[in-house]
Design a protein around this nucleic acid. Structure first.
Lengths: 153, 153
DNA sequence: TTCGATGCAAACACTTTGCATTGGC
DNA sequence: GCCAATGCAAAGTGTTTGCATCGAA
């Protein structure tokens, strides 16, 4: 399965002439533990690791995040609220989108064939080679809609 | 038409107890002149205005960008490459998506009923009140695909 | 042992803010 | 004239980088 990524990590790194360090292992571990659907910022990762036994500097977190993204083990999200966030890149990840509550920040995920097709269609129309499609839907979650829905725009 | 926004600007501002200043007018003007499909960063706006006769400080550009976004005259985009960017918020803007070349940064726009429906559907599924849907498609434009397509991953 | 990785702190890019002055209404 | 808006520069965020030390292979 896709989640056995860390098993390949050593080899993947070797292939690029790089080393498997405990820090890298721990960062990837964290993403695997929290699951594919989670969006962690560099700071999140740093904090979470500090709670465990591991001590990884923020700079290394940033470096590792970038490395793992380059290796396609992580994927960088573009959610406006806050800084850059990363998530585990699984194979079925292409058709995985976000629904964000603009009021409380709650984020849900969903999949959609239609979106995948629309993205492919658009890429085709402009002669682009498709890499990924991401739909970001902004709205109000049930609780926040109940509070703000009536009046305040 | 939707582009006659600046005509309402004075009243919109009045409604919020705020003033129509030449700076605000100029920033909005710039977006109207460049057209609805353009994505300008704060720095872009600042530079463009300097080329004209107007001198607006960067701080004011930021403040104005935020104000106009709050007033729904502008909309903030979430394109990862670079800082925040803004574009004119037109009425038909909800179904307006982006195709980005990850190699050269070229950006195309397109519309899609299917995406709009998928977004509405997802919002519905989770009980969210839909505000907007944005599809971001990443890929390689024809030129870049020609260069990188064959080998280099 | 070797050369890449880490940690720290300084450097950076982007954005926000305090305060005196300017100017819309 | 009043109070919001501006401009400047300083202060904040979030992210990257130089360099000496450490450690995986």
């Amino acid at each position: 399965m896709a989640l056995a990524v860390s098993g390949n990590l050593r080899q993947d790194l070797h292939g690029r002439g790089q080393r498997l360090t405990p820090q890298r292992q721990r960062v990837l571990d964290l993403f695997e533990r929290t699951g594919a659907g989670h969006h962690l910022s560099a700071e999140d990762v740093h904090q979470q690791l500090l709670r465990g036994d591991s001590r990884v500097s923020l700079a290394t977190v940033y470096r590792t995040l970038r490395l793992l993204t380059t290796m396609d083990l992580l994927r960088q999200l573009e959610l406006p609220e806050g800084g850059k966030r990363f998530e585990l890149a699984t194979d079925d990840d292409h058709d995985h989108h976000h629904l964000i509550c603009v009021a409380c920040g709650r984020t849900e995920e969903f999949e959609s064939e239609a979106v995948l097709e629309a993205g492919a269609d658009a890429a085709d129309r402009f002669g682009f080679k498709l890499l990924s499609s991401r739909l970001t839907v902004r709205g109000l979650c049930p609780s926040c809609a109940a509070i703000q829905g009536g009046d305040q725009g």
